[in-house]
């Protein structure tokens, strides 16, 4: 299978009419309805040689966006040495869910747990959908757009220790931060404070003031 984007799309559309092209700066990418996602991924694995699941992740587009959440699968073919990105939007903006592909690639197990942990996307039929980074019982999903980087005050995972130490998972002090900017708000290279004194390159001279 050749991996030119147009050919990937036409080859897949022959079998999955719902598959559409997705703008991509690097590898071929396709959009697919969530209902067809597992069938498409199974087809890619069994018929197209995409035997290696590189990554499962998710996107929170914005608090007000609809569909708000997308799930992204990155596939690699060790036969043809090429990547393919498959994206499906979650139907619900409040209780997002997606089918698990842990049965297709065991590698998906922990990736899906991480996506569930940080974005709150539930993976149906996952063998063991527990949090993987934050602790059991943590009430938020930190990579959602409405979650502040500093965090929200919650008790420590161990209530007994929390009682003895009177410590909580309190918001981190953001001295001069947070050092992030929303997409499109400004140039991220310039938004990074570290870059303010190092932001010269071949196009922009080093400032004399430094």
């Amino acid at each position: 299978m050749s991996l030119a984007p147009a050919e990937v799309l036409s080859a897949l559309q022959g079998k999955f009419a719902q598959v559409t092209a997705r703008p991509s700066g690097d590898h071929p990418a396709v959009n697919v309805p969530m209902a067809d996602a597992v069938a498409l991924l199974r087809h890619l694995r069994d018929e197209r040689g995409f035997d290696f699941l590189v990554d499962v992740t998710g996107i929170d587009w914005d608090v007000d966006a609809s569909p708000r959440f997308s799930v992204v699968w990155h596939l690699f073919s060790t036969r043809d040495h090429g990547y393919l990105r498959v994206v499906a939007a979650c139907a619900s903006d409040t209780e997002p869910s997606a089918p698990s592909v842990a049965a297709l690639w065991p590698a998906a197990d922990w990736h899906e747990r991480e996506t569930y942990d940080l974005l709150g996307i539930r993976f149906e039929n996952h063998p063991d959908l527990r949090r993987i980074l934050m602790w059991e019982g943590y009430p938020y999903h930190p990579l959602r757009k409405d979650f502040p980087l500093a965090g929200i005050d919650v008790p420590l995972p161990d209530l007994e220790v929390g009682e003895v130490t009177r410590a909580t998972a309190a918001p981190a002090p953001m001295v001069g931060g947070p050092f992030v900017a929303s997409t499109g708000e400004m140039n991220l290279t310039e938004a990074e404070p570290r870059a303010k004194d190092e932001s010269w390159d071949e196009r922009k001279e080093k400032p004399d003031t430094l």
């Binding site: 930190p142 500093a150 965090g151 998972a169 953001m174 947070p178």
Partner: peptide, 9 residues
């Protein structure tokens, strides 16, 4: 450098 929700300060 971990001024974040996950790290004890």
């Amino acid at each position: 450098m971990y001024r974040s929700y996950a790290t004890l300060q």
